[in-house]
Structures are given as structure tokens and as C-alpha cells.
Design a protein around this nucleic acid. Structure first.
Length: 425
DNA sequence: TCTGGGGTCCTAGGACCC
DNA sequence: TCTGGGGTCCTAGGACCC
């Protein structure tokens, strides 16, 4: 049996752990730049605040109902997520971390245990150790455990735990679930399936295998098998190295000057290089993109350019150099830019770096020196805090405030930043 | 005034190889 | 009337997830 444990209203729950006055109150957490609502407490849901709605559209109700509002605090949520995972892993060793608030659990070596009792114990322990409330669904496949989890959360009688086993019950529930709620069915498939009169999860369950394969590829077929209780998706307990890494942000206000965008892009390139080094990888392609606001009536422009590095690298200085070169090629004056970013691909492990055919000893030496320098920078930034030391091009200037992310409602980084903790006190 | 930031997998078709 | 039989790699586009 497979379990899916999921933290309820996760970002809101993290804020509540450190601010219990938020209990029983409507609370929302916003996306980066305080753009949209990405998490809601049950009380906020009851007020009709929809997932993903732009913040400016709910300002009236926020004031009227005294909704507590928070900017995303990923330092806090990431750390709380690690605590939840390690608590779960102490009880069930085989865990796949699926997202910041979800883990799949493998119960197959717990055959003789009462899964209901065990499940209750898991929820209770996580709450006790971390303060985060969770829901747990258990079934034969990942897809069915997603459904069981949904049932655990939605029904008051299940109290955050549901073991979905009985074939007849499975079919009954499937008949109540819109096909669009299934894991793996998005907007496009929902429309396509509706045209063929497939509306509920049970409709899809009853659709012939051949039709599914033909119209929904192997991906849909796996989903179909999983619904029938035949596992096709394995637990992935080790994290696979990423194939692409992207760092991008919207500006807090629209930007027109190349110099400002250069500063922002250099900062993103630095972050991207840090992420590469953390994964122990080097890149040989760097893609840079800029775009204007797609919702506004102002002239629109978006473009990207990919540079091929002469030699694979994860050196911040190298990435900044090529990112700015790419930017020069796509920047057009006269537009109000909203966002820029850097994406690296073609990643290879650091220790399998392909050097240039024409590299000489001097080049080797400079490569080693670069690695040492980056190592020192990473160590200092880890020990004394982010941005303790950085490359000059990405340094903060008078212009920085005009592009840096807007976070007007940020809570302290209670668990990862000592100064923040003191401030909170 | 104001609309996020990351990722993955699959398929078809084109280009090329022997 | 008739034109081989295998392959690989790359890219764009489509679909999805949180």
C-alpha cells in the first residue's frame, strides 16, 4: 500500500505555528511579489477567496473581514517542510518527497500492521513534533492514494485519514469525482474528454484501454491502470539531479533601463550558478529571457537568447558574463519590462567536465582557482548569511529597490535566521 | 496601480548515419 | 509497376505537476 501525506493549507499552517493568534482566523499567503493568493486557511476559503486570485482583487474583503495577509516566506516553509519529512521518515523509512507539502510513503514492509492505527499515529506525531496538521490517504497506487488523501481531507468524519481499499467503494467514489480532479488530468484533457462524454473519474475507469492509449498516450494509460489498482508509478526515494535550472523574478515595478535589468539579471545568474554548484553540476547553455506585462495594454515584447559557453562552467562570473552578453542582443529600448530570467540546461556533473581541446596548463590553473574562489564565496554566504559576499555586477545599488521583489507582509525567518528570531521576540 | 516561479515527460517529424 | 532496413539525435509543441 502507498500513502500520500499532505500538510493542510501548508503555508498558512507554517505561519500559525509561530503566531497562534492566527488560529480560527482567515489567513492568506501571497505569491512572490505579493501577486496572487497561493494559500488560504479554511476560514479564508469560506469567505470565497479563490486560489490564485490576484491580491488587488480581494483588498476590500481583506479589510472588511480582517483577513491576515502574508508574503511568501520560503526560508520558513522550506525548513518546516524538511522537519515534517524527517518526522515522517523516522516512522516510515521509504519516503518520496513529492513537493514542499506532500510525501508518498511506502507501506509495503508494514503488511501486518493496522494501517488505520499507524496512519493516525503518523498524523498525530507530525502535529506534535512540528505543529503542522496533515492528512493521509492510503491505497494501492499513487493515483488512488491521491484520491484517498482528498477524501481524508474533505470529509469531517475521516478526520484526516482514509484507507481506500474496497473495490466497490473505489468505484463509488470515482463516480463522484470530476475527471479534471484526477492527478494527471489538466485543462486540455478535461476538454478533450468532455467531447467524448467522459466527465467523471469512473467514466474514464470504464473507457476501453485501447481508446485511452490512442488518445492520451502512455501517460494516460498509466493513469488508467493506476485507477484499476495496478501500480505503474514507482516511489522515487532519491532525488534525481535536475536537468534544467531556472531563476527568474518579476520586477516590483516596470523597468525601462538596460542598466537596471543588467543588475537584476546578474543577480539571477549568480543564484543560478549557486544552484548549479549545490547540485555539483556545470552547464554549457545559458538562456536569457525578458518580457513585458502580458495583461497590460502597453506595447508587448518578449524574447530570449541562448549562449553556448566555450567550456562548461558553474562560475558566477562566467554565467554573469554570458547572461549580460545575451541580454544585449535581445534588449530593445522603449518597452516597459516586467520580468527577466536565466535558465541553464545541458547540465553535466562537475567531475565529468569536458574541457576545451585547446586548453593549456594556464587555463587549467585558472579553472582550479575559479572553483576555489566560488567555494570560498559559498562557504562565507552559508556561514554569515546570503549576500555576505557577491560579484560587483550584481551588487546592490540605488536602483536595486526599483526591481527587487515586493514583500510587504513578510514574517520573520523564525527557524533559519537568528536576527529575525530576536526581532520576532 | 496591481496578475508567481519553478519543474517534468512524451510524441512526431526532420535530419543524419551505415 | 517499381524505390531497403535498420538506427540515433535533436527540436518544437503539447501536456501535466506543485
Amino acid at each position: 500500500m502507498i500513502g500520500l501525506i499532505d500538510s493542510n493549507n501548508f503555508y498558512v499552517s507554517c505561519e500559525r505555528v509561530f503566531n497562534p493568534r492566527l488560529e480560527n482566523r482567515p489567513v492568506v499567503v501571497l505569491s512572490n511579489n505579493d501577486g496572487n493568493v497561493v494559500a488560504r486557511s479554511n476560514e479564508a476559503k469560506a469567505l470565497g477567496i479563490k486560489m490564485g486570485i490576484p491580491f488587488h482583487q480581494i483588498k476590500t474583503i481583506v479589510k472588511l473581514e480582517e483577513v491576515a495577509v502574508y508574503s511568501s516566506n520560503y526560508a520558513l516553509y522550506g525548513d518546516m517542510s524538511r522537519r515534517v519529512t524527517s518526522t515522517v521518515r523516522d516512522m516510515i523509512p521509504d519516503v518520496e518527497v513529492y513537493s514542499i507539502d506532500e510525501q508518498f510513503l511506502d507501506f509495503n514492509s508494514f503488511g501486518k500492521y493496522d494501517l488505520k492505527k499507524l496512519g493516525e499515529q503518523i498524523n498525530r506525531t507530525v502535529k506534535q513534533y512540528t505543529g503542522i496538521p496533515t492528512s493521509l490517504g492510503i491505497a494501492k497506487t499513487k493515483t488512488l492514494s491521491k484520491i484517498a488523501n482528498h477524501l481524508a481531507k474533505k470529509s469531517m468524519t475521516h478526520k484526516g485519514l482514509y484507507v481506500l481499499e474496497n473495490e466497490q467503494l473505489i468505484k463509488e467514489y470515482l463516480s463522484l469525482i470530476p475527471v479534471s480532479d484526477l492527478w494527471g488530468i489538466g485543462g486540455r484533457y478535461t476538454l478533450k474528454l468532455a467531447k467524448h462524454n467522459i466527465h467523471t473519474a469512473l467514466d474514464l475507469y470504464n473507457t476501453p484501454e485501447q481508446w485511452v492509449k490512442q488518445h492520451m498516450t502512455i501517460v494516460g494509460l498509466r493513469l488508467w491502470y493506476e485507477l484499476h489498482g495496478m501500480p505503474c508509478l514507482q516511489l522515487e526515494e532519491t532525488q534525481k539531479p535536475k536537468k534544467n535550472i531556472c531563476t527568474s523574478r518579476s520586477f516590483s515595478s516596470k523597468q525601462t533601463e538596460l542598466s537596471v535589468i543588467k543588475e537584476a539579471l546578474a543577480t539571477h545568474a549568480t543564484t543560478c550558478a549557486q544552484k548549479l554548484r549545490k547540485q555539483g553540476c556545470v552547464t554549457n547553455f545559458i538562456n536569457v529571457f525578458v518580457q513585458t506585462n502580458r495583461y497590460s495594454d502597453d506595447p508587448k515584447y518578449s524574447n530570449s537568447f541562448t549562449c553556448t559557453l566555450p567550456e562548461s562552467s558553474n562560475d558566477s562570473r562566467v554565467l554573469i558574463h554570458y547572461a549580460l552578453k545575451a541580454l544585449e542582443r535581445i534588449f530593445r529600448a522603449g518597452y516597459k519590462y516586467q520580468k527577466c530570467g536565466v535558465m541553464v540546461s545541458g547540465l553535466t556533473p562537475e567531475n565529468q567536465r569536458q574541457t576545451s581541446l585547446f586548453a593549456n596548463e594556464k587555463a587549467d590553473e585558472s579553472l582550479t582557482k575559479g572553483d576555489t574562489l566560488m567555494g570560498v564565496m559559498d562557504t562565507l554566504n552559508e556561514k554569515y548569511g546570503r549576500d555576505t559576499i557577491k560579484i560587483g555586477t550584481a551588487a546592490k545599488s540605488k536602483q536595486t529597490k526599483s526591481w527587487e521583489m515586493n514583500q510587504s507582509y513578510l514574517s520573520p525567518k523564525y527557524t533559519t535566521n537568528w536576527e529575525d528570531l530576536l526581532r520576532a521576540k
